[in-house]
Computed example of a mutant assay.
Amino acid sequence: MKKILLPFVSMLLLLCVINQSAQAQLKRFSIGPFVEVGFPTGDFGDTHNTGYGIGLGADLKLVAGLTAVGSVSYFRFPGKTVSTPTGNYDVKSANVIPIRLGLRYNLISLLYVKVEGGTANFTGDYNNGVGALVAPGIGIRLLGLDVEAKYEAWFHDKTHGFFGLKAGYNF
């Protein structure tokens, strides 16, 4: 985990510094870090606790009110101990790298709706492999601060769905 996190954070800081110098030349593009929390629902909620993630997002303004968005993150949902009639067992943690692309539309100057799709790369011992994802959401963006509420579903063998809150800052 530490071997992955240190290069990821270093790259994130480097991209933020590069973006700051490019801001004067490229006003239609922004990039920045974010954190998110996910509250699992359905069967996923029966086997996993609240998850946390960190990532890097970018957006590119297309036309009035419409923006192309993308992000990559690392999400971890710790497993629970599940009781069955035959005994208890521990569920492995879900470690996932979601890669999302989508569109955001500003309803008014601060309020937006967004829909993203992409892949969910499951790593580690739990449900290893790649699945699809969809993530509709609604949010507020004030200057560089971005706060979003969303529902995200990952489709790999079964649906792994959760309600999420995401907060970030775009440079």
Score class of each variant (00 low, 15 high):
133 L>F: 07
1 M>E: 07
47 T>D: 14
70 G>D: 10
131 G>F: 07
61 K>G: 03
153 A>N: 09
118 G>E: 05
5 L>Y: 07
149 A>M: 10
115 V>H: 06
102 G>R: 04
11 M>N: 01
82 V>C: 12
100 R>E: 14
147 V>Q: 05
107 L>S: 05
169 Y>A: 03
92 K>E: 15
94 A>S: 10
126 Y>K: 12
42 G>W: 03
2 K>N: 04
64 A>W: 04
60 L>R: 00
15 L>D: 02
170 N>W: 06
5 L>Q: 08
111 L>S: 00
41 T>S: 13
60 L>I: 05
98 P>W: 00
80 K>F: 10
100 R>Q: 11
17 V>I: 15
85 P>G: 11
163 F>Y: 14
115 V>I: 09
127 N>V: 03
65 G>V: 00
16 C>E: 13
73 S>I: 00
11 M>T: 05
36 E>N: 07
113 V>H: 00
39 F>R: 01
125 D>S: 14
92 K>D: 15
110 L>K: 01
31 I>S: 10
140 I>Y: 11
17 V>H: 06
161 G>K: 07
79 G>E: 11
6 L>S: 06
160 H>D: 12
156 H>I: 08
137 G>N: 09
94 A>M: 08
130 V>W: 02
49 N>E: 10
142 L>I: 14
87 G>C: 01
153 A>C: 02
128 N>A: 09
14 L>K: 05
11 M>L: 15
84 T>I: 09
120 A>S: 15
77 F>W: 12
41 T>A: 11
43 D>E: 14
107 L>I: 15
170 N>V: 07
127 N>E: 13
17 V>R: 08
150 K>Y: 15
170 N>G: 02
83 S>I: 11
93 S>Y: 10
1 M>Y: 08
141 R>E: 13
30 S>L: 03
89 Y>K: 07
72 V>P: 00
24 A>S: 09
109 S>H: 09
20 Q>W: 07
167 A>P: 09
41 T>E: 11
32 G>K: 00
118 G>D: 03
42 G>Y: 04
114 K>D: 15
56 L>C: 11
138 I>F: 12
102 G>F: 14
118 G>R: 00
33 P>C: 13
88 N>Y: 13
89 Y>F: 15
92 K>Y: 13
136 P>E: 01
6 L>Y: 09
130 V>R: 04
95 N>E: 14
35 V>A: 13
96 V>P: 11
110 L>H: 01
96 V>G: 03
134 V>P: 01
32 G>E: 05
73 S>L: 01
73 S>T: 02
154 W>N: 04
24 A>Q: 12
95 N>W: 08
144 G>I: 03
88 N>L: 10
51 G>E: 04
110 L>W: 07
75 F>T: 04
28 R>K: 06
151 Y>A: 06
147 V>C: 07
